[in-house]
C-alpha cells in the first residue's frame, strides 16, 4: 500500500486528536467490524439558531482506523477549522483526498467517513 508523504505526515502527527467536553455537536460513523470507526466533536460560535453562520472554533476526533482514516480525519479537521458551517457543507471526500495528494483507490472508502 503506497501512501503519499502528506498522508504519512498526518498519520504520524495527526492534528486535533481527542475529545471535547460539552461539545456543540458529535458525529460518529463507520463500524469497527469493517476496521473503520470515527467520531468527531465540534464547538461552534456564535451559538445561534442560524446554523449556517455558526463557525467551527474547535474540532477534535478519535478513530479506530488505518493510516488513511487517521490522515483523512486529521486533514479534514484542519480544513474545516475556523470555517462556517455553510462554507463547509459542500466539502467532499475528494477534496480531502486531493489535499492529501491522493489516496490508494481501495482506501477511498476510508474518506467517505
Amino acid at each position: 500500500m503506497e501512501y503519499s508523504q502528506k498522508v504519512m505526515e498526518h498519520f504520524m502527527n495527526p492534528k486535533n486528536v481527542g475529545e471535547i467536553v460539552n461539545p456543540d455537536g458529535v458525529g460518529t460513523c463507520g463500524n469497527p467490524v469493517c476496521g473503520d470507526l470515527m467520531t468527531f466533536y465540534i464547538k461552534v460560535e456564535p451559538k445561534t439558531d442560524d446554523l449556517n453562520s455558526a463557525r467551527i472554533v474547535d474540532i477534535r476526533f478519535k478513530t479506530f482506523g488505518c493510516a488513511a482514516a487517521i490522515a483523512v480525519a486529521s486533514m479534514a479537521s484542519e480544513m474545516v477549522k475556523g470555517k462556517t458551517l455553510s462554507e463547509i457543507k459542500n466539502l467532499t471526500r475528494n477534496e480531502v483526498a486531493e489535499e492529501l495528494d491522493g489516496l490508494p483507490p481501495i482506501k477511498l472508502h476510508c474518506s467517505n467517513l
Binding site: M1, Y3, F11, G65, C66, I70
Partner: peptide, 14 residues
C-alpha cells in the same frame, strides 16, 4: 484490542 493493524505496522515501520 482497540487499534487497527495497519496503523501498528506503519508505526513500527517508522
Amino acid at each position: 484490542k482497540y487499534v487497527e493493524g495497519e496503523s501498528l505496522i506503519l508505526s513500527l515501520n517508522a
